[in-house]
């Protein structure tokens, strides 16, 4: 019997199903040997299923992420720990993005709104600057936490890292605000793009140090190597 031209061949279906599973397993950051072991097992079983006339994709089901998590957890395969580069890069990107976004929001939306709505008595040359910088730093800290929450899903010690980041990053941002506040205001420099870049860099470096510290602290805590979502098996 001829196969319709649009129907995928069993080999193509098996390849497609194992590719999807491979992506899910990679997201779990398993040891490559463990990942290959699962893939080899499943590929062979998909081949057997295809020989029986079963569609390979139905074996894994509609949620390859769930299949991968359960297979890895049941087999005792541990995600690799660390990945400091990934966390650091993601956190730094989140911080810088949020700082720029925060700066634009505060400078062009919040500040004009507040000054046009309230008429405060007196003049606040120092305090106003600190409030301004604190707002940007807060935006940066929230950006870091948001990016990390995404990056650390299903990662070992992910929640512990987030909790420590929530503690250390605002502290680092606070130190940054004091540092750049003194420098910038002491020189009485207008907020041109270069100065904004230097401010962002100073805070980003401090945030990066806080991120690494949070990750090391969390990863070395007792029980940090366990998968975050070791699900039940039947």
């Amino acid at each position: 019997m001829s196969r319709p031209e649009t129907a995928p061949t069993p080999t193509a279906s098996i390849d497609a199903a194992t590719t999807r599973l491979d992506r899910s397993l990679r997201r779990l950051h398993l040891d490559p040997q463990d990942r290959r072991s699962v893939l080899e097992d499943v590929r062979a079983d998909l081949g057997a299923a295809a020989a029986d006339g079963a569609a390979p994709e139905t074996l894994i089901g509609p949620d390859p992420d769930s299949f991968a998590r359960e297979a890895a957890a049941a087999s005792g395969y541990q995600p690799r720990r660390g990945s400091y580069g990934r966390v650091l890069l993601g956190g730094a990107v989140g911080a810088v993005s949020a700082l720029v976004g925060g700066y634009l929001l505060i400078s062009y939306v919040i500040f004009p709104f507040v000054t046009s709505t309230f008429d405060l008595p007196g003049h606040y040359p120092v305090l106003g600057g600190y409030v301004f910088m604190s707002g940007i730093a807060l935006a940066g800290a929230l950006g870091v936490l948001a990016v990390l929450a995404l990056l650390l899903q299903d990662r070992p010690a992910g929640r512990a890292t987030l909790a420590r980041t929530a503690l250390l990053v605002p502290a680092a941002a606070g130190v940054g605000v004091v540092l750049i506040g003194d420098v910038v205001m002491g020189l009485d420099t207008p907020p041109d793009p270069q100065v904004v870049g230097i401010r962002a860099l100073v805070v980003a470096l401090l945030v990066a140090a806080a991120l690494v510290t949070a990750r090391v602290w969390a990863a070395r805590s007792p029980g940090a190597g366990r998968p975050t979502d070791e699900t039940s098996t039947p």
């Binding site: 079983d45 074996l59 089901g61 299949f67 957890a73 087999s75």
Partner: peptide, 14 residues
Amino acid sequence: GYGTVYPLMGRLRR
């Protein structure tokens, strides 16, 4: 389903 049996075999092996 296979999604139940395969992880369970992993557990038995472990």
